[in-house]
């Protein structure tokens, strides 16, 4: 089983400062929301790939994408079924359906679904970079730097800490109950829900006992003893990180400018717009992609300069 947990792989991307990655992913996220043009979205999506490859997390990424693709398929189908806009009718229902009128499936509606899917894939792919290449504790520290309260951050980090434990618990308890003849996939829905209780009740009760013990252990190690708290590890920006941080922001700035200029828009309805870029637009888009890809080269550069 491929786990969606952080693994230390020591690649240039892993070693890059978490803030740089956060900023870069944030840029992709915003750009994916402000651009409508499917070509732009596709290129944004493709620009996350070099990072995934450089970080050697493509296996994890692929299994996540498999799941995301199912989601996209559902989006495309539903959109095609319920959106009757668009002029190129591919199929029309022979009769009208109550509340839905006469369903039609149009080329435009399908393409709209595809466009939205590209946007979704881009965002998921970008966030995958965060989860696969930043240590959860570093995300926590970064959140603290952004002045989030310590206790809420700690609760988040404790819950990530106990996810593997919880998975073990589920496996163990379901072994126990299956040995007692419990068949999870037998019977009607109600029966199935009821049989899940034999796993859920011990799981929740055990977790409750666990929380008390964790709390005891934390108290015993002086948790909450003063207002102030130090952090042994710190997410600090070194001079080498500054260029990466700037290059994380630049695509956002450029993209916003392009969008303001009127670039990257697209209309699906009533008929698909033809995508045509003039020379200026082409060069701007190329510049944007160049800036986005700088992240990987800067990461490698930083790794080479640093001795560690």
């Amino acid at each position: 089983m491929i786990s969606f947990r952080y693994k230390e792989k020591g690649t240039a991307i892993h070693k890059l400062n978490p803030f740089c990655k956060l900023v870069w992913v944030f840029s992709i996220f915003v750009l994916a929301l402000i651009f409508n043009n499917p070509l732009y979205l596709l290129l944004l999506f493709l620009s996350t790939l070099p990072v995934i490859i450089a970080a050697r997390v493509w296996r994890e990424w692929a299994s996540l994408m498999k799941f995301a693709l199912y989601l996209c398929l559902v989006i495309i189908i539903i959109n095609a079924l319920v959106s009757y806009h668009g002029s190129s009718v591919l199929w029309q229902a022979p009769c009208s359906v109550p509340l839905m009128g006469t369903p039609v499936i149009t080329l435009e509606a399908i393409f709209f679904g595809v466009g939205m899917s590209l946007r979704l894939l881009t965002i998921i792919s970008a966030f995958a970079i965060l989860t696969f290449t930043i240590h959860p504790d570093d995300i926590m520290l970064a959140m603290l730097k952004m002045k989030l309260p310590y206790k809420s951050v700690l609760v988040t980090s404790l819950s990530t800490r106990f996810i593997p434990t919880l998975i073990d618990d589920v496996e163990r308890i379901s072994d126990v109950q299956r040995s007692r003849g419990l068949e999870l996939d037998r019977g009607k829905l109600m029966q199935r829900i009821k049989s899940r209780m034999a796993i859920i009740v011990p799981l929740l009760s055990n977790s409750l006992d666990r929380t008390v013990q964790v709390a005891e252990a934390m108290e015993s190690r002086a948790f909450g003893s003063g207002e102030k708290r130090t952090f042994y590890k710190e997410v600090k920006l070194s001079k080498l990180d500054v260029p990466a941080l700037i290059f994380g922001f630049l695509p956002l700035a450029l993209g916003t400018f392009m969008r303001w200029w009127g670039q990257g828009d697209y209309r699906y309805y009533p008929a698909l717009e033809k995508i045509s870029l003039d020379g200026f637009e082409c060069s701007m888009l190329a510049l944007l992609l160049f800036l986005l890809c700088m992240m990987v080269s800067l990461a490698f550069l930083k790794k080479r300069i640093e001795l560690d």
Partner: peptide, 8 residues
């Protein structure tokens, strides 16, 4: 298992 609070 119930006394460890950090990830590393």
């Amino acid at each position: 298992e119930n006394q460890l609070v950090a990830t590393d």
